[in-house]
Design a protein around this nucleic acid. Sequence first.
DNA 1: CGAAATAATTGACCGCGGTCAATAACAAAT
DNA 2: ATTTGTTATTGACCGCGGTCAATTATTTCG
Lengths: 193, 193
Amino acid sequence: MGRAPQKRTLETRAKLVAAAQAIVSESSYIELRTEEVVQRAGVAKGTFFAHFKDKDALMDQLIGARINDCLDQIEARPAPGTIDELIKELMPLVNLMRCERYVFDVILRLSGAAAIEEIGPIAQTFERQIIVMAGWLAQGPFRTDISPQLMAEGVQAFYIQAMALNFCAINQVVPVEERLGEYLQAWLMPAAQ
Amino acid sequence: MGRAPQKRTLETRAKLVAAAQAIVSESSYIELRTEEVVQRAGVAKGTFFAHFKDKDALMDQLIGARINDCLDQIEARPAPGTIDELIKELMPLVNLMRCERYVFDVILRLSGAAAIEEIGPIAQTFERQIIVMAGWLAQGPFRTDISPQLMAEGVQAFYIQAMALNFCAINQVVPVEERLGEYLQAWLMPAAQ
DNA sequence: CGAAATAATTGACCGCGGTCAATAACAAAT
DNA sequence: ATTTGTTATTGACCGCGGTCAATTATTTCG
Protein backbone atom coordinates (compact mmCIF):
# COMPACT_ATOMS: atom_id res chain seq x y z
CA MET A 1 0.00 0.00 0.00
CA GLY A 2 1.46 3.35 -1.08
CA ARG A 3 0.91 6.54 0.82
CA ALA A 4 -2.05 8.80 0.02
CA PRO A 5 -1.34 11.04 -3.00
CA GLN A 6 -0.19 14.57 -2.29
CA LYS A 7 -2.56 17.43 -2.95
CA ARG A 8 -0.03 18.80 -5.41
CA THR A 9 -0.21 15.58 -7.41
CA LEU A 10 -3.95 15.80 -7.79
CA GLU A 11 -3.70 19.44 -8.84
CA THR A 12 -1.10 18.68 -11.47
CA ARG A 13 -3.15 15.85 -12.86
CA ALA A 14 -6.24 18.04 -12.96
CA LYS A 15 -4.31 20.75 -14.80
CA LEU A 16 -3.11 18.22 -17.37
CA VAL A 17 -6.59 16.84 -17.96
CA ALA A 18 -8.11 20.31 -18.19
CA ALA A 19 -5.47 21.42 -20.69
CA ALA A 20 -6.07 18.30 -22.76
CA GLN A 21 -9.84 18.81 -22.76
CA ALA A 22 -9.40 22.42 -23.82
CA ILE A 23 -7.22 21.38 -26.75
CA VAL A 24 -9.70 18.71 -27.82
CA SER A 25 -12.63 21.11 -27.68
CA GLU A 26 -10.69 23.73 -29.65
CA SER A 27 -9.41 21.34 -32.30
CA SER A 28 -9.72 17.54 -32.13
CA TYR A 29 -8.37 14.41 -30.52
CA ILE A 30 -6.00 13.66 -33.34
CA GLU A 31 -4.51 17.17 -33.18
CA LEU A 32 -3.65 16.84 -29.52
CA ARG A 33 0.10 17.03 -28.81
CA THR A 34 1.49 16.12 -25.41
CA GLU A 35 3.88 19.05 -25.74
CA GLU A 36 0.97 21.45 -26.03
CA VAL A 37 -0.77 19.81 -23.08
CA VAL A 38 2.22 20.30 -20.77
CA GLN A 39 2.78 23.82 -22.08
CA ARG A 40 -0.80 24.82 -21.28
CA ALA A 41 -0.70 23.05 -17.95
CA GLY A 42 2.53 24.86 -17.10
CA VAL A 43 4.52 21.74 -16.29
CA ALA A 44 7.48 19.91 -17.79
CA LYS A 45 7.15 17.15 -20.32
CA GLY A 46 8.35 14.47 -17.96
CA THR A 47 5.55 15.32 -15.58
CA PHE A 48 3.01 14.23 -18.16
CA PHE A 49 4.53 10.78 -18.33
CA ALA A 50 4.73 10.54 -14.56
CA HIS A 51 0.93 10.84 -14.60
CA PHE A 52 0.09 8.91 -17.75
CA LYS A 53 1.90 5.82 -18.98
CA ASP A 54 1.68 7.15 -22.52
CA LYS A 55 -0.48 9.32 -24.75
CA ASP A 56 -2.99 6.49 -25.18
CA ALA A 57 -3.53 6.47 -21.42
CA LEU A 58 -4.65 10.09 -21.56
CA MET A 59 -6.95 9.33 -24.47
CA ASP A 60 -8.30 6.37 -22.54
CA GLN A 61 -9.13 8.71 -19.68
CA LEU A 62 -10.72 11.42 -21.83
CA ILE A 63 -12.68 9.20 -24.18
CA GLY A 64 -13.62 6.70 -21.48
CA ALA A 65 -15.15 9.50 -19.41
CA ARG A 66 -17.25 10.64 -22.36
CA ILE A 67 -18.48 7.13 -23.07
CA ASN A 68 -19.41 6.73 -19.42
CA ASP A 69 -21.36 9.99 -19.48
CA CYS A 70 -23.18 8.68 -22.51
CA LEU A 71 -23.94 5.38 -20.80
CA ASP A 72 -25.25 7.26 -17.75
CA GLN A 73 -27.76 9.03 -20.01
CA ILE A 74 -28.67 5.80 -21.74
CA GLU A 75 -29.10 3.90 -18.50
CA ALA A 76 -31.51 6.50 -17.15
CA ARG A 77 -33.98 5.79 -19.95
CA PRO A 78 -36.52 2.97 -20.23
CA ALA A 79 -35.64 -0.16 -22.14
CA PRO A 80 -36.44 0.09 -25.86
CA GLY A 81 -39.33 -2.08 -27.05
CA THR A 82 -38.46 -2.31 -30.73
CA ILE A 83 -35.35 -2.50 -32.85
CA ASP A 84 -35.88 1.02 -34.14
CA GLU A 85 -36.10 2.27 -30.60
CA LEU A 86 -33.03 0.26 -29.67
CA ILE A 87 -31.06 1.90 -32.45
CA LYS A 88 -32.36 5.32 -31.49
CA GLU A 89 -31.13 4.76 -27.96
CA LEU A 90 -27.75 3.57 -29.19
CA MET A 91 -27.11 6.43 -31.60
CA PRO A 92 -25.54 8.84 -29.07
CA LEU A 93 -22.99 6.16 -28.22
CA VAL A 94 -22.42 5.28 -31.85
CA ASN A 95 -21.98 8.90 -32.86
CA LEU A 96 -19.56 9.48 -30.03
CA MET A 97 -17.45 6.48 -31.03
CA ARG A 98 -17.27 7.56 -34.64
CA CYS A 99 -16.81 11.30 -34.12
CA GLU A 100 -13.26 10.94 -35.43
CA ARG A 101 -11.55 8.10 -37.23
CA TYR A 102 -8.70 8.43 -34.75
CA VAL A 103 -11.10 8.14 -31.81
CA PHE A 104 -12.61 5.00 -33.27
CA ASP A 105 -9.15 3.48 -33.69
CA VAL A 106 -8.14 4.38 -30.14
CA ILE A 107 -11.34 2.87 -28.79
CA LEU A 108 -10.79 -0.40 -30.65
CA ARG A 109 -7.17 -0.50 -29.57
CA LEU A 110 -8.02 0.07 -25.90
CA SER A 111 -11.27 -1.89 -25.75
CA GLY A 112 -9.45 -4.88 -24.32
CA ALA A 113 -6.42 -5.09 -22.08
CA ALA A 114 -3.68 -7.68 -22.26
CA ALA A 115 -3.22 -7.73 -18.49
CA ILE A 116 -6.01 -7.71 -15.93
CA GLU A 117 -4.58 -4.79 -13.97
CA GLU A 118 -4.28 -2.73 -17.15
CA ILE A 119 -8.01 -2.57 -17.78
CA GLY A 120 -8.59 1.12 -18.43
CA PRO A 121 -11.67 3.31 -18.68
CA ILE A 122 -12.53 2.40 -22.26
CA ALA A 123 -12.21 -1.32 -21.64
CA GLN A 124 -14.50 -0.90 -18.65
CA THR A 125 -17.12 0.89 -20.72
CA PHE A 126 -17.11 -2.05 -23.11
CA GLU A 127 -18.11 -4.36 -20.32
CA ARG A 128 -20.66 -1.81 -19.17
CA GLN A 129 -22.14 -1.58 -22.65
CA ILE A 130 -22.77 -5.30 -22.57
CA ILE A 131 -24.40 -5.14 -19.14
CA VAL A 132 -26.68 -2.25 -20.10
CA MET A 133 -27.74 -3.86 -23.34
CA ALA A 134 -28.22 -7.28 -21.83
CA GLY A 135 -30.61 -5.63 -19.38
CA TRP A 136 -32.60 -4.16 -22.24
CA LEU A 137 -32.65 -7.26 -24.39
CA ALA A 138 -33.90 -9.46 -21.58
CA GLN A 139 -37.07 -7.36 -21.48
CA GLY A 140 -37.70 -6.75 -25.16
CA PRO A 141 -39.67 -8.76 -27.71
CA PHE A 142 -36.55 -10.42 -29.02
CA ARG A 143 -35.39 -13.97 -29.63
CA THR A 144 -35.25 -16.16 -26.55
CA ASP A 145 -33.13 -19.05 -27.78
CA ILE A 146 -29.90 -17.34 -26.71
CA SER A 147 -28.88 -15.45 -23.58
CA PRO A 148 -29.23 -11.67 -23.26
CA GLN A 149 -25.47 -11.51 -22.74
CA LEU A 150 -24.83 -13.23 -26.06
CA MET A 151 -27.37 -11.00 -27.79
CA ALA A 152 -25.63 -7.96 -26.34
CA GLU A 153 -22.19 -9.10 -27.50
CA GLY A 154 -23.65 -9.51 -30.96
CA VAL A 155 -25.17 -6.04 -30.93
CA GLN A 156 -21.77 -4.65 -29.98
CA ALA A 157 -20.09 -6.58 -32.77
CA PHE A 158 -22.66 -5.22 -35.21
CA TYR A 159 -22.44 -1.59 -34.32
CA ILE A 160 -18.68 -1.75 -34.55
CA GLN A 161 -19.01 -3.40 -37.95
CA ALA A 162 -21.53 -0.78 -39.04
CA MET A 163 -19.22 2.04 -37.94
CA ALA A 164 -16.17 0.48 -39.58
CA LEU A 165 -18.01 0.05 -42.86
CA ASN A 166 -19.31 3.58 -42.65
CA PHE A 167 -15.83 5.05 -42.38
CA CYS A 168 -15.15 3.43 -45.70
CA ALA A 169 -15.65 5.59 -48.76
CA ILE A 170 -17.69 3.08 -50.75
CA ASN A 171 -20.17 2.38 -48.00
CA GLN A 172 -21.00 5.86 -46.86
CA VAL A 173 -24.08 6.05 -49.07
CA VAL A 174 -25.93 3.84 -46.62
CA PRO A 175 -26.28 5.64 -43.26
CA VAL A 176 -25.15 3.78 -40.14
CA GLU A 177 -28.64 3.61 -38.69
CA GLU A 178 -29.91 1.83 -41.75
CA ARG A 179 -27.09 -0.70 -41.90
CA LEU A 180 -27.38 -1.29 -38.19
CA GLY A 181 -31.11 -1.79 -38.56
CA GLU A 182 -30.59 -4.51 -41.10
CA TYR A 183 -28.04 -6.27 -38.90
CA LEU A 184 -30.04 -6.08 -35.70
CA GLN A 185 -33.28 -7.19 -37.31
CA ALA A 186 -31.51 -10.32 -38.52
CA TRP A 187 -29.69 -10.82 -35.23
CA LEU A 188 -32.39 -10.11 -32.68
CA MET A 189 -35.51 -11.17 -34.53
CA PRO A 190 -34.58 -13.89 -36.98
CA ALA A 191 -37.49 -15.19 -39.04
CA ALA A 192 -38.49 -18.79 -38.37
CA GLN A 193 -36.84 -21.18 -40.82
CA MET B 1 -1.23 8.71 -67.63
CA GLY B 2 2.24 8.46 -66.11
CA ARG B 3 5.10 6.80 -67.89
CA ALA B 4 5.93 3.13 -67.35
CA PRO B 5 8.05 2.64 -64.20
CA GLN B 6 11.78 2.30 -64.63
CA LYS B 7 13.41 -1.06 -64.03
CA ARG B 8 15.48 0.56 -61.28
CA THR B 9 12.30 1.57 -59.47
CA LEU B 10 10.96 -1.96 -59.41
CA GLU B 11 14.27 -3.27 -58.17
CA THR B 12 14.41 -0.75 -55.34
CA ARG B 13 10.89 -1.53 -54.31
CA ALA B 14 11.61 -5.25 -54.37
CA LYS B 15 14.69 -4.72 -52.22
CA LEU B 16 12.63 -2.76 -49.69
CA VAL B 17 9.91 -5.38 -49.50
CA ALA B 18 12.44 -8.21 -49.23
CA ALA B 19 14.27 -6.43 -46.44
CA ALA B 20 11.01 -5.81 -44.62
CA GLN B 21 9.93 -9.45 -44.94
CA ALA B 22 13.30 -10.59 -43.63
CA ILE B 23 12.96 -8.36 -40.58
CA VAL B 24 9.44 -9.59 -39.91
CA SER B 25 10.43 -13.23 -40.17
CA GLU B 26 13.41 -12.67 -37.87
CA SER B 27 11.50 -10.68 -35.27
CA SER B 28 7.96 -9.38 -35.69
CA TYR B 29 5.79 -6.78 -37.37
CA ILE B 30 5.81 -4.48 -34.38
CA GLU B 31 9.61 -4.56 -34.18
CA LEU B 32 10.01 -3.42 -37.77
CA ARG B 33 11.77 -0.04 -38.12
CA THR B 34 11.85 1.79 -41.42
CA GLU B 35 15.45 2.74 -40.68
CA GLU B 36 16.43 -0.91 -40.52
CA VAL B 37 14.51 -1.63 -43.71
CA VAL B 38 16.40 1.02 -45.70
CA GLN B 39 19.69 0.01 -44.15
CA ARG B 40 19.22 -3.62 -45.20
CA ALA B 41 17.96 -2.58 -48.62
CA GLY B 42 20.99 -0.33 -49.03
CA VAL B 43 19.03 2.81 -49.87
CA ALA B 44 18.43 6.16 -48.21
CA LYS B 45 15.56 6.83 -45.89
CA GLY B 46 13.82 9.19 -48.27
CA THR B 47 13.68 6.43 -50.86
CA PHE B 48 11.43 4.40 -48.60
CA PHE B 49 8.90 7.20 -48.48
CA ALA B 50 9.11 7.71 -52.22
CA HIS B 51 7.83 4.13 -52.53
CA PHE B 52 5.45 3.98 -49.58
CA LYS B 53 3.26 6.81 -48.36
CA ASP B 54 4.05 5.85 -44.79
CA LYS B 55 4.93 2.85 -42.66
CA ASP B 56 1.30 1.72 -42.64
CA ALA B 57 1.40 1.47 -46.42
CA LEU B 58 4.23 -1.05 -46.18
CA MET B 59 2.33 -3.00 -43.54
CA ASP B 60 -0.73 -2.89 -45.77
CA GLN B 61 1.33 -4.44 -48.54
CA LEU B 62 2.96 -7.13 -46.40
CA ILE B 63 -0.08 -8.16 -44.39
CA GLY B 64 -2.48 -7.81 -47.31
CA ALA B 65 -0.36 -10.21 -49.34
CA ARG B 66 -0.44 -12.78 -46.55
CA ILE B 67 -4.20 -12.51 -46.18
CA ASN B 68 -4.60 -12.95 -49.91
CA ASP B 69 -2.43 -16.07 -49.84
CA CYS B 70 -4.64 -17.36 -47.09
CA LEU B 71 -7.79 -16.60 -49.06
CA ASP B 72 -6.33 -18.37 -52.09
CA GLN B 73 -5.94 -21.52 -49.99
CA ILE B 74 -9.41 -21.13 -48.56
CA GLU B 75 -11.01 -20.54 -51.92
CA ALA B 76 -9.49 -23.72 -53.35
CA ARG B 77 -11.40 -25.85 -50.83
CA PRO B 78 -15.02 -27.01 -50.97
CA ALA B 79 -17.71 -25.05 -49.18
CA PRO B 80 -18.15 -26.10 -45.55
CA GLY B 81 -21.40 -27.90 -44.78
CA THR B 82 -21.60 -27.26 -41.04
CA ILE B 83 -20.72 -24.49 -38.64
CA ASP B 84 -17.84 -26.47 -37.19
CA GLU B 85 -16.46 -26.98 -40.66
CA LEU B 86 -16.97 -23.31 -41.42
CA ILE B 87 -14.94 -22.35 -38.37
CA LYS B 88 -12.27 -24.89 -39.23
CA GLU B 89 -11.94 -23.32 -42.67
CA LEU B 90 -11.77 -19.83 -41.19
CA MET B 91 -9.14 -20.57 -38.56
CA PRO B 92 -6.08 -19.99 -40.77
CA LEU B 93 -7.40 -16.51 -41.55
CA VAL B 94 -8.32 -15.85 -37.93
CA ASN B 95 -4.94 -17.00 -36.67
CA LEU B 96 -3.17 -14.86 -39.22
CA MET B 97 -5.13 -11.79 -38.21
CA ARG B 98 -4.41 -12.28 -34.53
CA CYS B 99 -0.80 -13.37 -34.78
CA GLU B 100 0.20 -10.08 -33.16
CA ARG B 101 -1.87 -7.47 -31.38
CA TYR B 102 -0.18 -4.86 -33.57
CA VAL B 103 -1.12 -6.75 -36.72
CA PHE B 104 -4.74 -6.92 -35.61
CA ASP B 105 -4.76 -3.17 -34.96
CA VAL B 106 -3.20 -2.39 -38.33
CA ILE B 107 -5.74 -4.62 -40.08
CA LEU B 108 -8.67 -2.89 -38.38
CA ARG B 109 -7.19 0.52 -39.10
CA LEU B 110 -6.67 -0.26 -42.79
CA SER B 111 -9.75 -2.39 -43.38
CA GLY B 112 -11.60 0.59 -44.81
CA ALA B 113 -10.35 3.55 -46.77
CA ALA B 114 -11.60 7.09 -46.47
CA ALA B 115 -11.12 7.75 -50.18
CA ILE B 116 -11.98 5.37 -52.98
CA GLU B 117 -8.56 5.59 -54.61
CA GLU B 118 -6.88 4.83 -51.29
CA ILE B 119 -8.30 1.33 -51.02
CA GLY B 120 -5.23 -0.75 -50.22
CA PRO B 121 -4.50 -4.48 -50.13
CA ILE B 122 -6.02 -5.10 -46.70
CA ALA B 123 -9.23 -3.24 -47.51
CA GLN B 124 -9.48 -5.31 -50.68
CA THR B 125 -9.12 -8.54 -48.76
CA PHE B 126 -12.01 -7.48 -46.56
CA GLU B 127 -14.24 -7.27 -49.58
CA ARG B 128 -12.85 -10.55 -50.80
CA GLN B 129 -13.57 -12.22 -47.47
CA ILE B 130 -17.21 -11.27 -47.84
CA ILE B 131 -17.39 -12.59 -51.39
CA VAL B 132 -15.78 -15.90 -50.49
CA MET B 133 -17.97 -16.40 -47.45
CA ALA B 134 -21.15 -15.35 -49.22
CA GLY B 135 -20.38 -18.05 -51.79
CA TRP B 136 -20.11 -20.64 -49.04
CA LEU B 137 -23.14 -19.55 -47.10
CA ALA B 138 -25.40 -19.61 -50.14
CA GLN B 139 -24.78 -23.33 -50.41
CA GLY B 140 -24.82 -24.38 -46.80
CA PRO B 141 -27.67 -25.54 -44.56
CA PHE B 142 -28.05 -22.07 -43.05
CA ARG B 143 -30.87 -19.61 -42.55
CA THR B 144 -32.50 -18.39 -45.74
CA ASP B 145 -34.40 -15.34 -44.48
CA ILE B 146 -31.43 -13.04 -45.15
CA SER B 147 -29.01 -12.71 -48.05
CA PRO B 148 -25.68 -14.56 -48.14
CA GLN B 149 -23.97 -11.16 -48.32
CA LEU B 150 -25.58 -10.09 -45.06
CA MET B 151 -24.75 -13.41 -43.45
CA ALA B 152 -21.14 -13.00 -44.54
CA GLU B 153 -20.91 -9.48 -43.12
CA GLY B 154 -22.18 -10.83 -39.84
CA VAL B 155 -19.65 -13.65 -39.81
CA GLN B 156 -16.92 -11.07 -40.36
CA ALA B 157 -18.26 -8.92 -37.52
CA PHE B 158 -18.29 -11.96 -35.26
CA TYR B 159 -14.80 -13.20 -35.91
CA ILE B 160 -13.47 -9.73 -35.33
CA GLN B 161 -15.42 -9.56 -32.09
CA ALA B 162 -14.16 -13.00 -31.08
CA MET B 163 -10.56 -11.99 -31.78
CA ALA B 164 -10.89 -8.68 -29.96
CA LEU B 165 -12.34 -10.37 -26.89
CA ASN B 166 -9.63 -13.00 -27.01
CA PHE B 167 -6.86 -10.42 -26.85
CA CYS B 168 -8.38 -9.34 -23.58
CA ALA B 169 -6.91 -10.87 -20.46
CA ILE B 170 -10.20 -11.83 -18.82
CA ASN B 171 -11.59 -13.62 -21.84
CA GLN B 172 -8.64 -15.73 -22.84
CA VAL B 173 -9.93 -18.74 -20.92
CA VAL B 174 -12.46 -19.36 -23.67
CA PRO B 175 -10.64 -20.21 -26.92
CA VAL B 176 -11.57 -18.23 -30.03
CA GLU B 177 -13.00 -21.25 -31.83
CA GLU B 178 -15.43 -21.87 -29.03
CA ARG B 179 -16.60 -18.28 -28.75
CA LEU B 180 -16.90 -18.05 -32.51
CA GLY B 181 -18.90 -21.27 -32.53
CA GLU B 182 -21.42 -19.83 -30.11
CA TYR B 183 -21.75 -16.65 -32.18
CA LEU B 184 -22.09 -18.36 -35.53
CA GLN B 185 -24.56 -20.94 -34.31
CA ALA B 186 -26.81 -18.12 -33.13
CA TRP B 187 -26.21 -16.07 -36.26
CA LEU B 188 -26.42 -18.65 -39.01
CA MET B 189 -28.83 -21.16 -37.52
CA PRO B 190 -31.16 -19.34 -35.16
CA ALA B 191 -33.72 -21.58 -33.48
CA ALA B 192 -37.31 -20.95 -34.48
CA GLN B 193 -39.08 -18.62 -32.06
C1' DC C 1 25.41 12.38 -79.82
C1' DG C 2 24.15 16.23 -76.64
C1' DA C 3 20.57 19.05 -74.45
C1' DA C 4 16.32 19.38 -72.20
C1' DA C 5 12.80 17.20 -69.47
C1' DT C 6 11.42 13.94 -66.21
C1' DA C 7 11.93 10.55 -62.67
C1' DA C 8 14.39 8.52 -58.74
C1' DT C 9 17.53 8.92 -54.92
C1' DT C 10 19.81 11.19 -51.20
C1' DG C 11 20.58 12.62 -46.36
C1' DA C 12 20.31 16.48 -43.35
C1' DC C 13 16.58 17.99 -40.90
C1' DC C 14 12.12 18.29 -38.21
C1' DG C 15 8.22 16.93 -34.99
C1' DC C 16 6.72 14.51 -31.42
C1' DG C 17 6.29 10.62 -28.21
C1' DG C 18 8.76 8.80 -24.61
C1' DT C 19 13.06 8.16 -21.04
C1' DC C 20 15.87 9.06 -17.10
C1' DA C 21 19.36 10.89 -13.95
C1' DA C 22 19.36 14.90 -11.30
C1' DT C 23 16.80 17.99 -8.40
C1' DA C 24 13.21 19.90 -5.63
C1' DA C 25 9.18 19.49 -2.66
C1' DC C 26 7.05 17.19 0.82
C1' DA C 27 6.22 14.07 4.97
C1' DA C 28 7.88 11.49 8.97
C1' DA C 29 11.06 10.70 12.59
C1' DT C 30 14.51 12.51 16.01
C1' DA D 1 14.76 22.59 13.54
C1' DT D 2 17.35 19.21 11.36
C1' DT D 3 17.94 14.89 9.37
C1' DT D 4 16.11 11.09 6.69
C1' DG D 5 13.22 8.84 3.44
C1' DT D 6 9.79 9.27 -0.11
C1' DT D 7 7.37 11.28 -3.87
C1' DA D 8 6.91 14.68 -7.62
C1' DT D 9 9.00 17.56 -11.06
C1' DT D 10 12.37 18.89 -14.36
C1' DG D 11 14.43 19.29 -18.99
C1' DA D 12 18.11 17.59 -21.77
C1' DC D 13 18.17 13.74 -24.48
C1' DC D 14 16.89 9.74 -27.59
C1' DG D 15 14.38 6.96 -31.23
C1' DC D 16 11.94 6.83 -35.07
C1' DG D 17 8.52 8.27 -38.53
C1' DG D 18 8.24 11.49 -42.01
C1' DT D 19 9.75 15.85 -45.19
C1' DC D 20 12.08 18.28 -48.79
C1' DA D 21 15.50 20.92 -51.44
C1' DA D 22 19.38 19.40 -53.77
C1' DT D 23 21.57 15.87 -56.60
C1' DT D 24 21.94 12.09 -59.74
C1' DA D 25 20.16 8.76 -63.07
C1' DT D 26 17.02 7.89 -67.13
C1' DT D 27 14.38 8.91 -70.93
C1' DT D 28 12.96 11.83 -74.83
C1' DC D 29 13.75 14.50 -78.69
C1' DG D 30 16.12 17.57 -82.07
